[in-house]
Design a protein around this nucleic acid. Structure first.
Lengths: 204, 204
DNA sequence: ACCTGAACACCGTTCAAGT
DNA sequence: ACCTGAACACCGTTCAAGT
């Protein structure tokens, strides 16, 4: 049956999927247990070791796939947003707002996963996670470059401008998930932050 | 001797102090163990229970004292910064920069503690932690009100402007601690963010 | 009022053994 | 190549008992 199929080549994916859904309706990565995941997936407690040498490896794989999913969702939001309509920066403003909204949506829905993705690294971050994070950032970077090309944003180091935009939405997500911003304040706060970002970046 | 004195009325404080320093040079709250803390402080593993009914209670106490210390450091930075010198907003800009720098300093030094303070809350946040967080926010709020009174910031809901400022510095801290911003980029990023915040808020 | 120490159920990790 | 199951050292939590 379908439950048996898990053990035939897809245990890794099954464990990750289970872990993600545990993160989504439980709270916090500290509640993730390799033994419990193995049990839920119908496998002995030693089996995950073939795919994740230790618990940390599972957490890093979750962070990596989290960044990949976030990248996809940002990209999708960008593509759905209206393109430039001729008036300088009009299309850009919509794409900026859509991207920020997509980020915050991800952050609220997958709060525990986001926390994992941005967890403090005492030492160095694993190469694969860092690369996935870079790919997410490159979506933001591309958006900034478009804004500069369209004349909606001042010229200047796009990397730095992109980091400030990312910091703004990540900071809002952090405040929201920790309960310092109520759910009904959230959309207004994001809108204000985007408007302020544009005001602080106006070219000319 | 001094080690014996721990057991006489100050076990709670001793455990918190130990936990804070473990957070500071270890990495992450998930490494905090009640049994290990009890051992380090020279007490049996059941003793902490008198002061912290469970592990979560210890973590919440850490978050609370974290917010209190952050409040103090922001206030101290504010008071050390030059006061208004007559030119509109000059004193304010310095105080704003000093406050942001103090926040980021705290965030870097106590990265794991900050993470605990802003950890995602599935349910509700404990009342005492929420109140301590509110007191930290009120320092930011007071700064914003001064800026508006001095004419350095546009009028408008100070709460919302304060949340955006807090989100900005918290977001930068998040990027720095997760390794997306290198240490040598950090000061420049904070300076840019503050400059941009002011540009987006200019009154008149 | 505060702490001790045994007990219980759970964990991550390791490793020989099976198929 | 992949999984099982026993083993080990560690947890958090509970609770009777001590002072």
């Amino acid at each position: 049956m379908a439950e048996r199929a898990y053990h035939h080549g897809d245990l890794r994916r099954a464990l990750l999927a289970r872990a993600e859904s545990t993160l989504r309706d439980g709270g916090g990565a500290e509640r993730l247990s390799l033994r419990e995941l193995a049990r839920q997936v119908g496998v002995s407690h030693g089996a995950p070791r073939r795919h994740f040498p230790d618990r940390q490896a599972l957490l890093e794989a979750l962070a990596q796939t989290g960044f990949e999913r976030l990248s996809e969702q940002l990209r999708a939001a960008l593509e759905r947003a209206p393109h430039d309509d001729g008036r300088a920066g009009e299309g850009f403003e919509d794409r900026l707002a859509a991207t920020a909204a997509a980020y915050v949506r991800f952050a609220i829905r997958d709060a525990a996963l986001l926390e994992l993705m941005f967890a403090s690294k005492h030492g160095e971050r694993s190469g694969e996670v860092a690369e996935a994070a870079e790919r997410t950032f490159s979506v933001v970077l591309e958006l900034i470059r478009q804004g500069q090309a369209e004349g909606a944003l001042e010229a200047g180091d796009p990397e730095r401008v992109g980091l400030m935009l990312l910091a703004t939405v990540q900071g809002i997500a952090s405040l929201a998930n920790s309960g310092m911003v109520a759910a009904d304040q959230l959309d207004g706060l994001v809108a204000s932050a985007i408007a302020r970002f544009l005001r602080g970046s106006r070219a000319g």
